[in-house]
């Protein structure tokens, strides 16, 4: 089994990439929210329960500079979504086996 890093760059309320990613990811995989994908980290948004429901199986990360750029630093984010910087992004890519983008 390979450890896949799933990259999601779309808001879950704009496109279905996040839903499809969560349908296809297998337990043990990691998901990194980048660009508009970071909107999926909002704790008070409807989509939060979908993310929280997947937390037993998947590890979630979000790209910090994209969170800050969008003014999301002053709203609650889902606990256990780990915020990383670009170097953390690189580490996630190299520490997993394959990277799959859900464009």
């Amino acid at each position: 089994m390979s450890h896949i890093l799933h990259l999601v760059n779309k808001s879950p309320t704009e496109r279905n990439g996040f839903d499809t990613c969560l349908r296809m990811a297998k337990p043990g995989d990691s998901v990194l929210m980048i660009e508009d994908g970071v909107y999926a980290a909002l704790a008070n948004a409807d989509f939060a329960k979908t993310i929280i429901g997947s937390m037993n199986d998947l590890s979630f990360y979000a790209l910090g500079p994209d969170i800050t750029a969008r003014g999301l630093n002053d709203v609650p984010l889902i606990e256990d979504v780990h915020v990383v910087d670009y170097e953390g992004f690189v580490d996630l890519v190299t520490e997993t086996d394959v990277t799959q983008s859900w464009l």
């Binding site: 760059n9 660009e35 670009y86 170097e87 690189v90 890519v93």
Partner: peptide
């Protein structure tokens, strides 16, 4: 994003 990722990857010696 690709540019900033690339810069970070180079900084980490990749």
């Amino acid at each position: 994003t690709a540019y900033l990722f690339t810069v970070a990857a180079l900084a980490k010696g990749h």
